[in-house]
Design a protein around this nucleic acid. Structure first.
Length: 306
RNA sequence: GCCAAGCUAGCCAAGGUGGUCACGGCGCGAGUCUGAAAAACUUGAGAUUGAGGUUCAACUCCUCAGCUUGGCA
């Protein structure tokens, strides 16, 4: 790898597109490689079955896999935490001169890793959040209009109806008002090469159907039971992992097992759809629609890593 | 067989003294998104069982047919 410029491959795509196995396949063909999973839920230490942390047991020692199990399940980890972690992995890979492949489906995290997003350094303000979280959308709008009319008018129709976005905007305004508006230096970023994996939507749906059925029979329900015992606070982010709310409904007797499987499957398909919408909009992604010729990609990549 | 109630989008479902675009929810489609992102939010397309009749006008009233559910000898 070039000593001065670090090249990093990013493999993105919707859930069930086969991006992880592609990354592993690719890594095998390199003399050594680090893989960083960029996945907001697999980053937690529990729910291995539900979130599908399917890394082969016989992983070659020349491949190191990062990004899994890095947060405790009762943590409210977030974008900034993950970016910090990623930067460490990126730096380590550069120093050890090891090619790094980032693979994941959490679009915003990937975006933040590859660009210096300015506002993400502003931390959550729990006091403020608690104070205003119960307010109506209308009231939040009024507040923001008063506090930061510029930001208010920059929001689109969807965002302006979104309490979470309004609260975040108010949080940022409050932070800026304190005069601690830090101007973070743009550190030299590595060069990122994006590959998007996008099979036909029907293939994805079929994969999702199979995957949910498999995960249910592999012990997902017990996994949720255990989670409820270990971390009874079901307001934690980990509780929003796909499959968890659906399984909780089953445990509460509100749904049959069949309905649970249907609901979970649907949630996964909806999620895949949202991911596709997001990634399609990101510039600079080289898309692989159907079958991927790993070898030709490797050939291309070797040129980059020369 | 008789009586009763009902039949509104793919599914569930509200409505009105007959009178412009027929509530909703689910599902389906399309999007938004810089510290919750597997999150949160926005938005679109779909309907009056069929055939007659009354009327200026019927999804709403009448008749017949079909189907569904409940009750009865």
């Amino acid at each position: 790898m070039n000593k001065r410029k670090q090249h990093i491959l990013i493999i993105c795509g919707p859930t069930a597109s086969g991006k992880t196995s592609f990354a592993l396949q690719l890594a095998k063909e390199l003399p050594k490689a680090n893989i960083l999973s960029c996945d907001s839920r697999q980053a937690y230490q529990d729910l291995g079955i539900i979130t599908g942390k399917d890394i082969p047991d016989d992983l070659s020692p020349k491949i190191k896999f990062f990004g899994l199990n890095i947060f405790k399940s009762d943590e409210r980890s977030n974008l900034a935490d993950f970016v910090r972690y990623s930067q460490k992995i990126i730096n380590d890979s550069r120093e050890s001169n090891t090619p790094l492949i980032i693979v994941g489906g959490t679009g915003l995290y990937l975006k933040a890793i590859t660009q210096n997003l300015s506002d993400i350094i502003i931390p959550p303000n729990q006091k403020l959040r608690q104070k205003i979280e119960k307010l109506s959308v209308q009231k939040l709008q009024n507040l923001l209009q008063k506090e930061n009319p510029q930001k208010y008018s920059s929001l689109n129709h969807s965002d302006i109806m979104n309490p979470r976005r309004l609260i975040r905007a108010l949080e940022i305004s409050a932070y800026s008002h304190r005069g601690t508006n830090s101007t973070k230096k743009n550190e030299a970023l590595p060069i990122f090469h994006w590959i998007g994996i996008l099979p036909d939507i029907d293939v994805i749906k079929k994969q999702i159907h199979q995957r949910v059925a498999k995960r249910i029979s592999a012990g997902s329900i017990d996994e949720v039971k255990q989670l409820l015992i270990n971390f009874p606070n079901n307001n934690l982010p980990i509780y929003t992992s796909l499959g968890v709310p659906q399984i909780i409904a089953l445990l509460e007797g509100k749904k049959t097992k069949k309905e649970t499987i249907e609901d979970w499957t649907k949630a996964e398909i909806d999620y895949a759809r949202r991911q596709i919408v997001w990634f399609k909009k990101q510039p600079g992604i080289v898309w692989y629609d159907k079958s991927i010729d790993t070898h030709s990609v490797v050939t291309d990549l070797k040129k980059i890593y020369q």
